[in-house]
């Protein structure tokens, strides 16, 4: 029996293939139900105009009960966007990836949320505690307990 996670991811993938991704988001690779890669680009006028970033989703067997581990890819010349909620190691401090995750969200919904998080940024800067965090950060961003304090940026 295919697990709930695999069946749900299969459906999401089918939808992506049949209906396409939202504007500015493209599927790069989804060969299995463990790791998917997307490119993400902010459309229209923004601080990130013309910049393309790569997002990595990692799923565990409890998806969608447990949230996917989402981060920007920083290998092979790729960079994490400079944003007050994005650490230079690609980890993202966003409540929907943590305590506000809900199974009603989907992979594309997460992409769109992150896209709008970038779009609404006024000033390109790293989080204040970037260096300290990056030094001690676990490999999996889900193991970090972020303190979500600032919804304005």
């Amino acid at each position: 029996m295919a697990s709930i996670a695999a069946r749900r991811l299969g459906k999401e993938l089918k939808e992506i293939h049949s209906e396409g991704c939202p504007v500015g988001i493209n599927l790069v690779k989804a060969d299995d139900f463990e790791t998917w890669w997307f490119t993400i680009e902010v459309m229209g006028e923004s601080e990130y105009k013309g910049e393309v970033y790569t997002l990595q989703f990692r799923f565990d067997g409890q998806y969608p009960i447990s949230s996917p581990a989402v981060q920007f890819v920083i290998t092979d010349g790729r960079q994490a966007p400079i944003h007050p909620h994005v650490y230079s190691n690609g980890h993202i401090c966003a409540s929907i990836l943590g305590n506000e995750w809900s199974p009603v969200l989907s992979v594309t919904a997460v992409c769109v949320t992150l896209q709008s998080m970038l779009a609404s940024c006024k000033k390109k800067e790293r989080p204040a505690d970037n260096d300290r965090y990056v030094r001690h950060a676990p490999d999996n961003p889900k193991k970090t307990q972020f303190h979500y304090d600032d919804d304005t940026v």
Partner: peptide, 8 residues
């Protein structure tokens, strides 16, 4: 890990 992806 405390909580979080304990399920995983």
């Amino acid at each position: 890990q405390e909580g979080g992806n304990e399920g995983g």
